[in-house]
Design a protein around this nucleic acid. Structure first.
Lengths: 182, 182
DNA sequence: TATGATCCTCTCACTACTGAGATACTAATC
DNA sequence: GATTAGTATCTCAGTAGTGAGAGGATCATA
């Protein structure tokens, strides 16, 4: 995966006279948080990806299968929102899983535009054997923190994420609109 | 971006008899933490990406420029490790920045295999105008948390990330080796 | 029952990456 | 000086994913 973003100078001292980065405190704190968040996220992704690739699955493919495994058949659009891929990507993912006999499409009787995705027997069997392992890997990757710390971390991240999601939903349209006008 | 990974059932109740996911506590806690971490990370990426794309830069390109901006000229390999891209990606990124006149390669007198990347005047000027804005966006995205909470979060994430990174470094080689043997 | 808005999926051209191997160099050992 | 291993970048074919737009179906309203 390796999404490439982290950075933002650990030591906030500009290198060779690197301009007015002026480490006023609130900004520095936020920047540092972002770096640390990105790094730990990527480290985790690395671990989980390695686990999942042993079964010849992408993280995205696994995410689809997991959604189906835990929630049962779902509309493509629902899964899409849940795992955050583009519409094209969603089609692509289900295609690939279908080709391997792990999932299948089903018609939606109530709305003929829509399609369900569902695990096949084979897909469900695979998940049944993979998932517990995978959960164990996640748990293993978190052993740096005590249970209580994990819960605390979860709470903080949830708050952070909520605000960021609000921003993410709000800005792009605005920015795009403004860019258009000039 | 949209890396697609989150999921792992919010309610740990298996859907239509979804097998023995048995929500024993430690696992459930870890799973939930992973979901929340992934989601908030992606929300932040969304926001930052939108900000950076206004200047026709990829997150990866920006990461390179930021590294150069704050640390001065660096070997390609150093930047690569810092922003976590593949060697091919690194070459590609510097090529693109060079083509736009934002960065340039320089020979390394001490080791003729190696190359430095450095910002051009133009690149440095761009960063000087972009970076403070960008920092403000980051700060803005974090306003859901108080300063003290941000610091707490940073500390927890750092611990988590350290352990995960250790695992990430350890497992892939092992796994690959084992897979080969069978 | 038209009409227009909206919704869901799929198509397709495109892109930012990866990863294996090639190339060029350095370093260590005989 | 050779030889061998190691390291840094580059090349290139391949890939997972994006995003704009098309097609088809549904919904709301007049």
């Amino acid at each position: 995966m390796k999404t490439a973003k982290r950075s933002a100078s650990k030591d906030s001292r500009p290198a060779k006279g690197g301009a007015g980065v002026a480490a006023d405190l609130p900004t520095a704190t936020a920047l540092k948080l972002w770096v640390v968040l990105a790094r730990s996220h990527d480290a985790l992704v690395e671990v989980l990806k390695a686990d999942i690739e042993r079964h010849d699955l992408t993280l995205a493919e696994f995410a689809v299968m997991e959604a189906l495994y835990h929630k049962g058949p779902q509309l493509l659009g629902e899964i899409q929102k849940r795992i955050l891929v583009s519409s094209g990507g969603m089609t692509f993912l289900v295609d690939r899983l279908a080709k391997r006999g792990l999932a299948e499409r089903r018609a939606c009787p109530a709305d003929r535009r829509a399609r369900y995705a569902a695990l096949t027997k084979k897909g469900e069997k695979l998940m049944r054997s993979i998932f517990p392992e995978h959960a164990a890997v996640i748990q293993g990757a978190m052993t740096g923190l005590k249970q209580s710390e994990q819960r605390e971390l979860t709470a903080l991240l949830k708050t952070l994420g909520k605000e960021a999601a609000r921003l993410a939903a709000a800005t792009p349209a605005c920015k795009a609109a403004l860019a258009e006008q000039e």
